[in-house]
Design a protein around this nucleic acid. Sequence first.
DNA 1: TAGATAAGTTAGACACGTCTAACTTTTTGA
DNA 2: TCAAAAAGTTAGACGTGTCTAACTTATCTA
Lengths: 153, 153
Amino acid sequence: MSSGASQTREDFTPDSRDPEAQADGFAHVRNAHESEMAEDYVELIAELIEAHGEARPVDIAERLGVKAPTVTKNISRLKVAGLVRREKYRSIFLTDRGQALAEACRRRHRIVVAFLQSLGIDEVTAERDAEGIEHHVSEATLIAFENHIKGSD
Amino acid sequence: MSSGASQTREDFTPDSRDPEAQADGFAHVRNAHESEMAEDYVELIAELIEAHGEARPVDIAERLGVKAPTVTKNISRLKVAGLVRREKYRSIFLTDRGQALAEACRRRHRIVVAFLQSLGIDEVTAERDAEGIEHHVSEATLIAFENHIKGSD
DNA sequence: TAGATAAGTTAGACACGTCTAACTTTTTGA
DNA sequence: TCAAAAAGTTAGACGTGTCTAACTTATCTA
Ligand SMILES: [Mn+2]
Ligand SMILES: [Mn+2]
Ligand SMILES: [Mn+2]
Ligand SMILES: [Mn+2]
């Protein structure tokens, strides 16, 4: 066993965190990954509905940078998850739950982008980084971001 | 077609970004996901070597919160990728490339955690958020984080 | 209004990262 | 020293998210 008898270093090295806490952190990330697809889709669907009155697979595919069959498959997953309403060959709409999730995601996305920009990051980079970062920001961090934006305007 | 004749809204809605740029953002995130496993592993392997002199699958599994066969499989992927050196049933070591990647990841991890803490986030939350955020932070953003830390000490 | 084009679906493949069950090898300690 | 325990591997399964090829449905336009 590596933590036997007179093991010393691990108690002195600041890098060596509590294994359980560390595992908890990684579990959180894996968990966030599971929601990521749904979050990006409902967010985008809400944007498309606002901009065009409807969300069509062809537009979703273009903006996501994926092929049409990927969208078909994922939309049917969202339907099973109760986030979208949809009839075959027709546009996609959000359920109440989907709408609520979309609004939360859009808020979060906006805050992260604005925050990065308030740090001096250019818009393109801010958008790029935010698209990934948004899924890993806790509510506490989000509030800290908001406060920082307020404090620097 | 939804962008026909007198389509107006999309030119006025700030939310509706350029589709191509948006697709580029999502592509970046998908790309980051592909490196994520490798980054977390080499970072952790470097930490374990520093703390214990060696990195053993059992410790990697514990700290990652996954089962042993997952580690075996992923380590062999890292070996194929040229990031680790390893003989069957023995401890894991980093190649020069693995070492370089690990150092870059540890630096990034440290900066993200310190930055979040400088915003008033508690350590546990900062570590948790950072574990996911770190993979989506561009060098430009990282430097902005560093500057912000300096400016607030 | 019918033929051409665009949009959407289905089927089937693939890589990734996870798991359990069963097996092998190494390490420990009586 | 050698049997038991711990560590590690192998085999095989699963869900996710992506793709291409082939097909079906809807929309546009001559
Ligand atoms: Mn996103
Ligand atoms: Mn987003
Ligand atoms: Mn990480
Ligand atoms: Mn990390």
